[in-house]
Write a protein that binds this DNA or RNA. Structure first.
Length: 263
DNA sequence: GGTAATGTTAGACT
DNA sequence: TAGTCTAACATTAC
């Protein structure tokens, strides 16, 4: 789930549920996912404190803590989620995938869920100690068209899908949204950047923004039916049900696309 | 039992 | 140097 719009959603969820509540206990059934910090130190530094502020950078969620120079940094991997609930709420199927649990004074708890253990958590004074954050490209909902064109020029030899996926080029876009953007821009994921016309570059910029922007406030189940995302399994093109979507490995990932609509 | 999964990274290769 | 490709990581669901 966790690409830019999804992490943005986690951020607002965290904001609504977990700020300004005293942490009374922390449990970590998968301590190895806490990086560069022993669990004992992690616990000692955070228990008794409150989360103060939260923001997002690329696919990372960063949390400021009251009275602590360190920030708590989450990466959700491929299967991350957050769940805020009462401590005594009935058990659910997700329970065994809760890798980190923050208990609050009010009797509620925040669970960081991670099915495959590809997510990671850090407690660092400077988020740029994480190499990927240090090298991270600009935020696609913040920069202007001129900046986008500059980035394209900088990587003119690169494959387009590889470019969209590379966090060092642009922050926050992953496999699902890169497919969606390319589908809506009607451009093949095989294209090399230098082959794009001026018009295609502009369409690409517009679609990148509109897809990400539209997705932020919506649940996945609310995405427009015209989106590719609904058809990753059935392989029916949402533009024309006679078109058959194909699945190919491009830039190391399974790309789903319509060879008839995307040129 | 095999395969694929919304991510990242290291190392080898062109 | 830039870009591509593969394997590896850990684990589940189909």
């Amino acid at each position: 789930m966790p690409e830019l719009p999804d992490v943005e959603c986690f951020k607002s969820y965290f904001q609504r549920t977990s700020l300004n509540k005293k942490i009374v206990k922390i449990e970590a059934p998968a301590k190895e996912l806490i990086k560069k910090c022993k669990f004992e130190d992690f616990q000692r530094k955070l228990v008794g404190k409150k989360f103060k502020r939260v923001w997002r950078r690329g696919k990372f969620m960063i949390v400021e803590i009251e009275g602590l120079p360190e920030k708590l940094i989450f990466h959700f991997g491929m299967t991350g989620d957050l769940k805020y609930r009462r401590k005594d709420a009935p058990r659910t199927g997700e329970d065994r995938f809760s890798r980190l649990i923050f208990r609050f004074e009010n009797g509620w708890e925040l669970r960081w869920i991670n099915i495959r253990k590809f997510g990671k958590v850090w407690l660092l004074k400077d988020p740029t100690e994480i190499p990927l954050i240090k090298k991270m490209g600009p935020e696609p909902l913040e920069f202007k068209k001129e900046e986008f064109l500059r980035l394209l020029k900088l990587h003119s030899q690169k494959n387009l899908k590889a470019f969209l996926l590379d966090q060092k080029d642009i922050a926050g876009i992953g496999n699902i949204y890169s497919d969606e953007i390319l589908f809506q821009a009607k451009i093949s994921p095989h294209r090399k950047i230098e082959s794009l016309s001026k018009k295609e570059k502009e369409i690409l910029f517009k679609k990148m923004r509109s897809v990400l922007k539209k997705a932020v406030p919506l649940l996945w189940t609310e995405f427009p039916k015209s989106w590719l995302i609904w058809h990753r399994e059935d392989k029916i093109c949402p533009q024309n049900k006679n078109h058959h979507l194909i699945r190919e490995i491009i830039a190391g990932r399974a790309a789903i696309w319509c060879p008839k609509c995307q040129k």
